[in-house]
Design a protein around this nucleic acid. Structure first.
Lengths: 337, 337
DNA sequence: CTGTTAGCGCCTTCAA
DNA sequence: TTGAAGGCGCTAACAG
């Protein structure tokens, strides 16, 4: 036998309206009746039906989280697990449920709003040209992207990619590196392009050479970072430093360098991007541009909830600062040559 | 203005009951009226409210997924992301939503059933002595654990851990290794103990020595695998082979071995457990006991849905077979000594 | 095969 | 401060 608000009302000798008020912390209830009701609630083990409440209030109390499809390798990146934990943690605090979807079969995001399953949407790993987002914006459905896309009015939260990359490469330049290679992910994602631009602009400001053979695209996994580095090592002279636009690429690349019998950082210095847990454990520990991943998750939730509840209006575009974490892989100032 | 079933009914000149029948594919509707109704549905852009349906049918159409708390390092293991993709993929097929929770603050699982937010629960990374599970079982709430626990009547899906470990270690023994070390995760998780038991029993069957200094506990991360191996290497003579109860430990351990200037597999052979993507990319590629991770995810969903819909009854305990994937790290037969 | 009716369990006016 | 009544949008009997 299911417990309902009516049973509580009867046992507490009040109307169900009053029970509802007590449960929703309405101020206009006597302390006495509140206690009486709560006593019955406890004894009965009553929990209000989420579905009934949601139907009446017309709120789903739910945020949808869309993750890349199973065949998309990028999802293995620890960045995602970390930001998801940020989401889950903060959603609980804000009293929203988190619904998980994979982005398969040209998924129509709006439908989740139409059938009122979600109040808002969080999307991670969305490609820059995703058209579905435009529709969300036009319909004014609350959503936040993790990472900028081409659509100008999109709501997103991101890190200061260009600046982070710029600082990393400048750091290498100031260490007297003249030939700095770049390994980074696909430009399908804007953040990858921005990091590349940060790299370029640092080269320029330091009057360093730029060459096609110094830049290599990768799919942001250790494997492909490894392959990318092997290609770079085929050209000579080889670079004295590498900036990788994400840590997994950096880690894979370091492996290729070691395999060749070269030393890090003496022969080739390294800087990555993200600061995943693994980074500090590398040998040598990886210097990297830290993104505040967990915080990006919690911030995204707070912002989204603000949009849902109407406190925040207009396009939301937030970029969180990054921080250069200096470890051994970037080495000391370079004297020779 | 929100679209409701009434509007569709009016425009299609039928009752809302008929609209409902059409939408739920009831067989007793004329093809003609079905078409008429569907036409209106399309034109109007009508989607039935999930919440209203759920309230009426008293089904949440939702499965809860409980992941380890943010401070729990084990969640970074690629095993989890992979199985979650299996869950998400299959849940969609079965038309269930997946609700994500982190296991914080002595979370009372049953509450999710009380307020009817979920029809069933999937729990990953649950420790062997978790008392909350007993309550779920007693109340006959549908749930599935990923990984066995101490409670005998628990529903779980797992891999054949003992057998997988046994085969791996036997393989090493047959390669003529006499001194085989073990690195594995905490016995807080039953699967870790089972893998250890598989190791022990293989040693026994091959009349090999067992020594405390040959076994090292780790928390299943690369870092701790690395540390564990460094400790093992301090004893002499050092082992000629290592069985690690998960790939991350194996990968970390291999790093420690290489650092010492030892060769893999010539000086020390390695076998891991899981077959995460990274395993095949190692240098040398890691021989490992493959768990069918994605399949464990889809199987769990199917089983859980069966329980929810009453087609499956009683305690469900499934162990999926593992497979030894032989790569370079385990080496060839050992002649010397 | 289709329509009518009656809830599902809750919140929210409106009166008292 | 409390109660009565109505309705959220849908499905499920039960008639017809």
């Amino acid at each position: 036998m299911r417990k309902t608000i009516d049973q509580v009302a009867q046992l507490a000798k009040v109307s169900k309206a009053t029970v509802s008020r007590v449960l929703n912390n309405s101020p206009k209830v006597t302390e006495e009746t509140r206690e009486r009701v709560m006593k019955v609630v406890k004894e009965l083990g009553y929990y209000p039906s989420a579905m009934a409440r949601r139907l009446t209030t017309n709120k789903a109390e739910t945020i949808g989280l869309i993750i890349p499809a199973p065949h998309d390798r990028t999802f293995g990146n620890p960045f995602y697990t970390e930001i998801i934990r940020g989401f889950a943690h903060q959603a609980k605090i804000k009293k929203y449920d988190l619904l998980l979807f994979t982005n398969e079969h040209k998924f129509n995001y709006s439908q989740l709003f139409y059938d009122r399953r979600v109040d808002g949407l969080l999307l991670i790993g969305v490609k820059r040209n995703d058209k579905g987002i435009i529709q969300l914006s036009k319909k004014e459905f609350p959503y936040i992207l993790t990472g900028k896309i081409d659509y100008e009015d999109a709501n997103y939260i991101d890190a200061e990619n260009r600046r982070g990359a710029y600082r990393a490469v400048s750091y290498l330049a100031n260490l007297n590196h003249k030939k700095i290679a770049y390994i980074g992910g696909s430009f399908e994602f804007v953040f990858n392009q921005e990091r590349f631009e940060g790299y370029l602009s640092a080269l320029q400001d330091h009057n360093l050479e730029y060459g096609k053979e110094l830049t290599m695209e990768s799919i942001s996994t250790q494997e492909s970072g490894y392959e990318a580095m092997r290609k770079i090592l085929k050209f000579s002279p080889i670079p004295t430093a590498v900036f990788a636009a994400n840590d997994l690429d950096a880690i894979g690349a370091m492996k290729a360098v070691k395999e060749k019998g070269l030393r890090i950082p003496e022969d080739i210095a390294f800087i990555g991007f993200d600061d995943i847990q693994l980074a500090s454990f590398m040998d040598p520990p990886l210097t990297t541009v830290r993104q505040p991943i967990f915080e990006m998750g919690t911030t995204a939730i707070n912002l989204l909830v603000g949009m849902i509840e109407g406190r925040v209006k207009g396009a939301q575009q937030i970029e969180l600062p990054t921080q250069l974490i200096i470890r051994k892989s970037s080495g000391k100032i370079r004297m020779c040559k």
